[in-house]
Computed example of a mutant assay.
Amino acid sequence: MKNLVGFLFVSLFFISCQQKIKPEDLVNINGYWEIEKVGFDKGEDKQYVMNESYDYFEIWKNNDGFRKKVMPQLDGTFIVNDTYENIKIRFKDDQVFMDYVTPYAKWTEELIAVTEDKLVFKNQDEKEYHYKKAQKLNILGDGKKIK
């Protein structure tokens, strides 16, 4: 019985420590993000050491926005194409969802965590996508700072 009470206490502690995402936290989504790992529902993770593309998010005050794939270049610029996904952020109970729409598909991901330097989504297949804030590259040695 003591073990059961202890287990319940620890479980409630971890549940209560989970980040509750508020509307004012959504501004942290804006910017360039680099995927770090994907967590699968069976417990294994796939690590990403180097990425050829970043995700760029822009969310406006009305909770609408978009996501684009961009490719960082050695001089600190990005190659961008015209492909993007429209996003609508939706709050439901204690959860936050990102509803995506393209001309070809619609899908939803749950926003698990968002801070200035961390972003975590979970899709319908229970895969968790962990991102870190991306830094612009400039390894050409020209001495110029990237803005």
Rank of each mutant, 00 (worst) to 15 (best):
F57Q: 00
E34N: 09
T108F: 05
K22M: 08
D142K: 10
D25G: 08
T102I: 01
V114A: 09
T102K: 02
D82V: 09
K37E: 15
Q19R: 02
G141Y: 06
Q124I: 14
D25Y: 11
R67Q: 12
D45L: 13
W60E: 13
I89V: 15
P72E: 04
F13E: 03
G143E: 09
L140D: 11
F13D: 04
M71C: 07
V38A: 03
F14W: 13
K118C: 05
G141M: 08
V27P: 03
F66H: 06
A113I: 13
K106Q: 14
V5L: 15
I59Q: 01
E52T: 09
W107K: 07
I87M: 12
A134M: 03
F14N: 07
A113L: 14
R67V: 15
N51G: 04
I29A: 02
Y131S: 05
D41L: 06
R90V: 15
L4W: 09
L140V: 15
N123L: 04
L74K: 15
K122W: 05
K37Y: 12
G65Q: 00
F121L: 01
M1A: 10
I112M: 04
E128N: 13
M98C: 06
F9A: 13
V114K: 08
K127D: 09
V80K: 13
N62D: 15
K92T: 12
Q19T: 03
Y131P: 05
I89D: 00
N81G: 07
T108G: 06
V27K: 15
F66V: 02
I29Q: 00
T83M: 10
F78C: 09
F9T: 13
L137V: 04
M98I: 04
E52I: 09
F121V: 01
E85M: 10
V5N: 09
P23F: 02
Q19N: 03
N123P: 07
V5Q: 14
Q135W: 07
K122R: 15
K20A: 01
N62Q: 00
L12S: 05
D125T: 11
K122I: 14
G43I: 00
